[in-house]
Design a protein around this nucleic acid. Structure first.
Lengths: 241, 241
DNA sequence: TGCTCCGCAACTGTATACACTTTTCTGTTG
DNA sequence: CAACAGAAAAGTGTATACAGTTGCGGAGCA
């Protein structure tokens, strides 16, 4: 009974206050992404409760779409739901983070194997070669600046996700996503590693690519597994500090 | 008395289904389970749209809790959501079902390895031994009746899920769940296999158990992988009919 | 001071109203 | 008869009201 009924509610749209236009239209989908990103970035402390009314006020929507997003995120395993208590950020113990690298080694290894079995499309091949070339270029420089690390992170991401796509299995992609889902993991994240390690891993990228291109499934799988496991080791070393 | 997730490793003397299907209190949690089960059982045709109002009428609740459940299921990847069109049952192509066995071989293999590394608790050991003994008993009989298959299915399930629990990694459990999530897979399901195959696989259970008990991670992992891959082969054979 | 109990405030769970979009149906026209 | 336009119907998206539950704090009492 709040609004008049007859007038094609479009005019509501223009009423919004002049300033503060962070998201023009949190069209539900973007709301979901926004919340997921916030959680992954660790902006809600692990184990903490998410207050629906506070969130809905902050995001300037009603509780309904907020709850919708939270329910999806709970389904994804990023949040836990307790009846009559609401949603809390799931806590991932360190052991899970370690195990996740084992799992990721296996699943990305499978992806490499499948890619080798099924072959690369032209486009994927180009993407991979570009990732390799750009990686060579970025790592050629001596110093380990922050910009360098940021660039290489993007290149690394491109390389891995291309192979995942090439594997042609949604399931494998989903599994890898599960492995990368831990909020704190991004905290420790990759970038803290030695430049030497990064160079070695980039060399591994070359070997992986060669194996896939040469249609050698076993070799591709093994190379990829070792590659991911080496990241695990770097990570463990870096945690011990 | 808010027991809902129970499932402690308590000894279920004999395998018995949960039972109790009265819809006295579809308290949201059970609604979720109900819908998930219906989908897994293939009661909504793959790719088909789920009508919220119809569902809410059938289940005698309002659209709100129905949507809540659908959103969770979409997060789990069982449903797809399209804006302004609602939820549809996700379609899993056969290739995904095949790939899922590869993934499951790897992840259950990892579980076996972790279990071997970390050791078995008394309770788990007992559960596993009971599963082996009951399996021996059930398979001793000559004929391949339906009851026999049903019993063995439950035993098989108990064996595998015990090992998953023993691995102590939520992530690994989740991955295996992803692999078993395909609706149609239950259709082709296990039961259609030759008794001889089942006997062989039960022998493999023995070997896996021995390897875990003997703290031989590599052996346990390999045995489990081969075991699951043999199921894949049976499945492929059975699909070709 | 320390304890219990009651009541209030805050929060979540569900129902319902309504806005908006898509689909279906139907009558008209070429 | 086919094609189309437009209105009605059906369905989804969001807001809001209200009911049920939990948690906290303060009054009362020993």
């Amino acid at each position: 009974m709040a609004l008049e009924r007859g007038e094609k509610g479009i005019r509501n749209r223009t009423i919004s206050p002049p300033a503060a236009e962070a998201d023009a239209k949190p069209h539900s989908g973007s709301l979901l992404e926004h919340l997921r990103q916030q959680i992954l970035d660790g902006q809600f402390q692990s184990g903490g409760r998410l207050n629906e009314v506070r969130l809905s006020e902050q995001l300037k929507v009603s509780r309904t779409p907020v709850r919708a997003a939270l329910q999806v995120l709970a389904g994804e395993g990023l949040l836990r739901h307790t009846p009559n208590k609401g949603f809390t950020v799931r806590d991932f113990p360190v052991s899970e983070i370690i195990d996740a690298y084992e799992m990721r080694a296996l699943s990305e290894g499978l992806a490499a194997r499948l890619a080798a079995e099924r072959g690369l499309g032209d486009e994927t091949r180009q993407t991979l070669e570009r990732a390799l070339a750009e990686g060579d270029a970025v790592l050629a420089k001596r110093s380990g600046t922050k910009g360098q690390r940021g660039s290489y992170a993007a290149i690394n991401e491109a390389f891995h996700s291309s192979i995942l796509r090439a594997a042609g299995s949604d399931l494998v992609r989903e599994v890898v996503r599960l492995c990368q889902r831990m909020p704190q993991a991004s905290a420790h994240n990759v970038m803290a590693f030695e430049l030497e390690d990064v160079r070695n891993r980039h060399e591994a990228h070359h070997r992986i690519y060669e194996a896939i291109l040469g249609r050698e499934p076993r070799e591709a799988e093994n190379q990829m597994r070792q590659h991911v496991l080496s990241v695990k080791l770097s990570m463990i070393r870096s945690i011990r500090r």
